[in-house]
């Protein structure tokens, strides 16, 4: 048996930064917007409900301050989630899957395919209307190392799913 032990040049290793990350489908922005609007209207709705329940003067006088405060927070949150949309990117390399997300806290997670336990493609009702699906990648143990790539085109998700499945099964 020939044993080789070449020295590794750190600079020559495949670099995550060189990987071309693909943005997720634009339609997912609509889902984010819709979900956001539903949540915000629920919050503001409850606020109005509370207004009718509590008759105290202190609360009634300051209601509009509270309302605009909450509204402002909602708007900021909405803007951030829209801006953060651009940061949601993914890539599949020969040996691993990369997923990047987050505006305020930006993170790039890589899961080697040899560590994947199983893959799941799930489609909510809303996502089906836009032809999207979510790809969930499960590793062993810690839930922190699981990946969930949202807003992929259905066919694309299926393709990745098949690719990973065959790789995972091939390794056994």
């Amino acid at each position: 048996m020939t044993f080789i032990n070449p020295q590794i040049q750190i600079e020559d290793l495949p670099n995550v930064e060189d990987a071309v990350l693909k943005p997720i489908s634009k339609s997912y922005l609509k889902i984010i917007a819709l979900n956001g609007l539903v949540v915000y209207s629920l919050i503001l709705g409850t606020l109005f409900g509370v207004r009718h329940l509590i008759k105290e003067d202190g609360f009634q006088d300051n209601f509009w301050y509270v309302f605009f405060g909450v509204l402002g927070l909602c708007i900021i949150n909405f803007i951030i989630s829209i801006l953060a949309f651009k940061k949601r990117k993914y890539a599949v390399r020969g040996h691993d899957v990369i997923y990047a997300k987050g505006l305020i806290v930006h993170s790039i997670t890589t899961v080697p395919i040899s560590r994947i336990q199983h893959v799941e493609e799930s489609r909510s009702w809303l996502a089906r209307q836009f032809g999207l699906s979510t790809l969930k990648i499960f590793t062993a143990g810690e839930s922190g190392s699981d990946l969930s790539i949202k807003g992929l085109h259905h066919l694309e998700a299926k393709g990745i799913n098949d690719f990973i499945s065959s790789e995972v099964n091939g390794n056994d």
Binding site: V16, T109, T110, T139, G141, E142, G144, S145
Partner: peptide, 29 residues
């Protein structure tokens, strides 16, 4: 035994080019 590697950087760390690295195994990150 590493299950996944994650690079984390907040918006405040970007100008300073600082980042944290989270290494997960099956039992702990």
């Amino acid at each position: 035994k590493i299950q996944s590697v994650k690079l984390k950087q907040t918006i405040f760390q970007r100008p300073r080019a600082i980042a944290s690295l989270v290494i997960s195994t099956a039992s702990k990150s």
